[in-house]
Design a protein around this nucleic acid. Structure first.
Lengths: 225, 225
DNA sequence: CGGTTGTTTGAGGACGTTCAAGTACTGTGG
DNA sequence: CCACAGTACTTGAACGTCCTCAAACAACCG
């Protein structure tokens, strides 16, 4: 492993607040996996062999069932993939697929669990990370149950980061975004059309919103993070 | 507080594996709240003042938005309510309503967070609890995105506990179950009708399944917990 | 027993999917 | 640089699922 990778693992967001030797131990136990876009890091039903940390790139968590496939959430640099399955030593409920070329640090599951028991600061850091992700999932469940498709799209757009000029760059192709939002690509296309009256203009992956407060009202946006 | 309540807090499932003094400290900091059926423990948008542990009874987590209301999940004796909001000190995303008369132990949020930083075993126990709940939410998201209403009902029924004779007792009225499953009460009624060919017979809150393997196939049941 | 609340059934409509075709991208080799 | 293939996105029509509204029915509680 390169010193650069070593450093990236030690300073990963998950470990914020932990003493330096925790990162060092994890980095020593880790091996690096490079994934090309489209490759799987693991698949649902497997027993977790590693805790995967994303060093660079972006991965989608994919759920399968009833003959279809959906995307639950996407994670980028600095995030850990499916800590719960690793912590509990249970079968994965989801698969992970690289959306773009990515590099992962794979920490043997057993080592991670052992360290979790031994290092209070690590356990504390994992609590924070799980709590954050928990709230992301809750928001998604609320969206799916309470909002119609176009409202979910509006909600999603309003939550995205903007550049200086207020433009949003979509982090994934629309086919995948559709599945993240719980609809078909066809319906997503129509949902974008529904948002045009609020000044939502999409050119490729760039999206602009001119009537933001109108859009907020349209989807009953909840800004709480 | 009664010695009985004290004991119940100390032996609550969340604290499994923690040394005795953790339970004692939490019990000393806690106050008891009795809720009548229908009363709210807290509401979405509030800043968490307490971590609530359910000593007895059952509470539903309610999400509001877009002019409607839904039930995300229900929790019973021994469970903690919305640990993530308390841990992160963020506004609640959900409200909690007592489904039946219930008793809660309310631990001041600040005390809980302090203890979480100080007691490694508590942090470790919270990791386990959050990880378990995380997987419950993932299953729900997969259900909502991948399965139709009747399939979600089938899936839900197959996951419920049975008594010796294989009967299921629904833990809530159907109106609420409908919202848990992401549908209207009317649709739930029709979903039960759709499951009759698989021998799903409902009498009041008792449900029997005669063709379990057929039902499993119908909803592509995933038994992984 | 009547009032209240919860559940079922029916009819009509809105939302979302499927299937199919057409249109824009994107990258490759000539 | 263009032609081309392959892929993604859009649009349209038909269908299915699910919701709304309304009414009948059942269960529960004073």
């Amino acid at each position: 492993m390169s010193p650069d990778d070593h450093h990236r693992i030690e300073t990963i967001a998950l470990l914020e607040g932990t003493p330096p030797h925790v990162g060092r131990l994890l980095a020593e136990a880790a091996e690096i996996r490079a994934l090309a876009a489209g490759e799987l890091a693991f698949v649902a039903g497997q027993r977790p062999q590693f805790l995967h940390l994303i060093l660079s790139g972006r991965l989608a968590l994919i759920g399968e069932g009833a003959g279809a496939e959906t995307m639950v959430e996407a994670f980028g640099e600095g995030e850990a993939l499916l800590t719960p399955a690793v912590v509990l030593d249970r079968l994965y409920l989801l698969s992970a697929r690289a959306m773009i070329d990515s590099r992962l640090a794979a920490i043997p599951a057993e080592s991670f669990r052992a360290l979790l028991d031994r290092e209070p600061a690590l356990a504390r850091a994992v609590v924070t990370q799980l709590a954050r992700h928990w709230r992301v999932l809750i928001r998604q469940i609320k969206d799916l149950k309470l909002r119609a498709g176009a409202q979910r799209l509006a909600s999603y757009l309003l939550a995205q980061d903007r550049d200086r000029s207020g433009r949003i760059y979509l982090l994934m192709e629309r086919r995948l975004l559709a599945r993240r939002l719980g609809m078909t690509p066809e319906h997503l296309s129509r949902a974008f059309a529904q948002l045009r009256p609020f000044g939502v203009a999409a050119v490729g992956r760039a999206v602009t919103i001119s009537d933001e407060s109108g859009l907020r009202r349209f989807c009953d946006y909840d800004a709480v993070t």
